[in-house]
Design a protein around this nucleic acid. Structure first.
Lengths: 233, 233
DNA sequence: ATCTAAGTATGATAAACATCAAGACAACTC
DNA sequence: GAGTTGTCTTGATGTTTATCATACTTAGAT
């Protein structure tokens, strides 16, 4: 008997669970492809589904008092909104597609069900939540300990590391969204990019070139305890 | 046969685990009482122990580039540094006692061991991590969406709610530490408390009186998706 | 009671950051 | 090619927040 949704079977979250558990999780699940700028979830809503991004990208953002901030972007193959799902509490963030995106929706009641019965699933959830938790703490440290210029410099160095230390790379995102991610306004980002020129940062459109890694690193003082975004730290 | 450390047996984290698991966890554990201002853990260090605060209080803080920020305070009966322990990754925060404190230290190798073998423990860890994760996300939203005056106003209203809506209460902490928690300088906190006078905030030393809850609420616009600090949201 | 130290408050100033308005630029459409 | 749209940049200005210097207040020690 073949399992439904073989694409997500190999995610760390589902890799070690039993066939029966996977059946339960996927029995009432479905795949959906959404156009760009579609709001998939809204903060405050009850968590009906656990989401898995298979293709495209989903931006998580939050609102308060007519203000909005971008929290982070979910790329394939990752889940989002796991904590709300297992706790059965309202979403803390909203999510919208950035581009045409294929998403798997797993009913959250089934997720909680399997969580209760399958120890391997509980263990996988622990790993996922611990990663997310540590990422969120790093984010708070970044916001509280650094100026916006310092956050930007460290962001660029993180991109550089993720590109296998290629000195040229493309910004992953629209600049206005990048600004919001970094906790600043688009105008301020524009000026900050200029302000990093003296550390060898050259920007042309989406393209960035870092011509003096040492100078930029000396200024940014990256730390594994803030900037490492791999789940291994 | 009686179990060691009956005091912590009833914590949510240990409540449902087997007697054998609890034995394993506590076999090499020990209790220690520390004087005030003792640094228990240092960010970057390997997670040797999972800590449980039994009495007193422990401040978690972080450093970067000769700056320091207070993250939050751990009160009895709570654990701290759980995510680092289960993932076996370096601490992201340092911790020091605020006053004379009694702490239980559980060897983190044993914690990971029991986590692997006892499904009930894994489930309890999920709940704890999900609470912490959501708390950290609320913290980021608070920092990114609000000014320091708005954060302070919401903090005071949170205290008010936690005191069963008594209009007078004492600030839990030294003002300089409260300022750091809220992401501002002590001077700015002092001025901000003055700035909230027009919304009925009267401060005398550690004592706060809120004389116009409606005005303060109208200004602060508290949100369950940011300010609710109970694990139930 | 006086001294000290730590915490807090206040004033002056500067830096960081946001806002508003206008312009530049590229990618599309017609 | 002219116009449209969306995004980004730049400049002027104002607000928020941090920094520095100093004074005050309180609790504890001598």
């Amino acid at each position: 008997m073949t399992e439904k949704f073989p694409e997500i079977r190999n995610l760390a979250l589902f890799h070690d669970i039993s066939t029966q558990s996977f059946e339960t999780l996927t029995r009432a699940a479905y795949v959906q492809t959404y156009p760009p700028s579609t709001e998939l979830i809204t903060e405050g809503d009850a968590p009906d589904f656990l989401y898995v991004v298979q293709a495209g990208a989903v931006e998580l953002f939050a609102n308060w008092a007519h203000r909005e901030t971008s929290m982070w972007t979910v790329w394939p193959q990752s889940t989002f909104i796991l904590a709300a799902t297992v706790k059965n509490r309202p979403y803390l963030m909203s999510g919208r597609t950035l581009c045409k995106s294929r998403v798997v929706l797993l009913p959250s009641a089934d997720v909680r069900n399997v969580f209760e019965t399958d120890g391997a699933f509980a263990k996988a959830i622990v790993t996922e939540l611990a990663n997310g938790y540590r990422g969120a703490i790093k984010n708070s440290k970044n916001l509280k300990l650094r100026s916006s210029l310092e956050r930007l410099a460290n962001y660029l160095l993180t991109c550089y590391r993720q590109c296998d230390k290629a000195p040229r790379f493309l910004l992953e995102a629209q600049k206005s969204r990048l600004a919001s991610n970094l906790g600043m306004t688009p105008e301020n980002l524009s000026r900050a990019l200029n302000g990093l020129k003296k550390y060898g940062v050259a920007v042309d459109g989406q393209s960035v070139e870092l011509t003096d890694i040492k100078a930029l690193t000396d200024f940014a003082q990256p730390s594994l305890l803030i900037d490492d975004d791999t789940p291994f730290f």
